[in-house]
Amino acid sequence: MPFSNLSRPLYEIKASLFKGLAHPLRIRILELLSESEELSVGFLQRETGLEASHLSQHLSVLRRYRLVTSERRGSHVYYRITGERVAEMLTVARALLLDVLSEDGSRLEGALVGSEQSR
């Protein structure tokens, strides 16, 4: 269990959480779920293009890290994020990434302008 040894330092527990997030398709699944109240496994499969077994593995990891929860209704299983904090984390990560990319773009632009002036 990812959080079973809570006597570890908080930074180690955080690192464990980030390991659970460390796959692009798990981020995609969380983003899809954050945009809806809940989604069926079938919908997630269509949107991600994953085979059922691979999607199941990713959802299992997200459940283990308590980022999503599921509910079976009849023959269908529905997933939702476990709370608003998960959606907030995705929003903050997106904003941070845009800041970094913008800064890198500004540096690149400055370097290109500088190299053209030296010609």
Rank of each mutant, 00 (worst) to 15 (best):
E51Y: 11
S56W: 01
Q57M: 13
S34V: 07
I29D: 02
L55A: 01
Y11E: 12
L50V: 10
R26D: 02
S16A: 10
F18L: 15
Q57W: 12
S53Q: 12
R46H: 11
L21A: 05
S36I: 09
K19S: 13
S56L: 08
L50G: 06
A52T: 15
L55C: 10
E37V: 11
L17E: 03
S56N: 03
R46P: 08
P24F: 00
S16F: 00
K14A: 13
F43K: 15
I29G: 03
L33Q: 07
R28N: 00
A15R: 12
G42C: 09
Y11P: 00
S53T: 02
S36Y: 11
L39P: 13
S40D: 11
S56Y: 01
R26N: 02
R46E: 15
L25T: 06
A52V: 14
L30H: 10
L55I: 08
I13A: 09
Q57C: 02
F43W: 12
R26C: 00
I29F: 02
F43Y: 13
G42M: 13
S34P: 09
H54V: 15
E38V: 02
H54R: 14
L55F: 01
L25A: 03
H23K: 02
S40P: 15
R26M: 01
Q57S: 14
L32R: 07
S16Q: 09
Y11D: 14
S34W: 04
S53R: 13
I13H: 01
